[in-house]
């Protein structure tokens, strides 16, 4: 399920079946021209990626709006803020929190996060609409769904 009004309508009566939250962690910054294109591309891929995982497992996961932050990651601030997000979501019967990211910086503060961090090496460049990118994402989604199922 996604954070949209019709999905919320579906979620509320079926709460006990939906126990997993997916939070994409997406960095951006405008301070260096060289990296802007790459980061924007990664953000696009991350959004598509998370959307595809949601499609595959839609009955049990809730994909919430992505967590955007300015790169480089300010660990303390962001971890604290992200944990308040989780605290808020814990008021509903969610038990698994899965963070998806292409940014390796999160790896260092993984233990402070309330939830499971899944880091993936990103596709560096290309075209999101190209069929190679499409195949790559589909393949990865199948494997990641498998991984998420292992948490259940």
């Amino acid at each position: 399920m996604k954070y949209s009004s019709n999905h919320m309508e579906q979620y509320i009566p079926a709460k006990e079946f939906v126990d997993t939250i997916i939070i994409p962690l997406i960095p951006f910054h405008f301070s260096a021209d060289a990296e802007m294109k790459k980061l924007a591309f990664q953000a696009e891929v991350a959004t598509i990626f998370a959307g595809e995982i949601e499609k595959e497992l839609s009955g049990r996961v809730m994909l919430i709006p992505p967590y955007y932050y300015v790169k480089p990651l300010e660990q303390e601030v962001e971890v604290k803020r992200l944990n308040t997000w989780v605290q808020n979501m814990e008021t509903q019967p969610f038990t698994n929190f899965i963070f998806l990211t292409f940014d390796p910086a999160w790896k260092k503060c993984e233990k402070d996060l309330t939830g499971n961090l899944l880091w993936f090496p990103s596709i560096q460049s290309g075209d999101v609409h190209a069929s190679e990118t499409h195949h790559l994402i589909t393949d990865q989604v199948a494997q990641v769904s498998e991984l998420i199922r292992s948490f259940w």
């Binding site: 497992l57 839609s58 009955g59 049990r60």
Partner: peptide, 8 residues
């Protein structure tokens, strides 16, 4: 599509 909550 599962008729329960829409998984595959």
């Amino acid at each position: 599509v599962c008729t329960h909550l829409g998984c595959v």
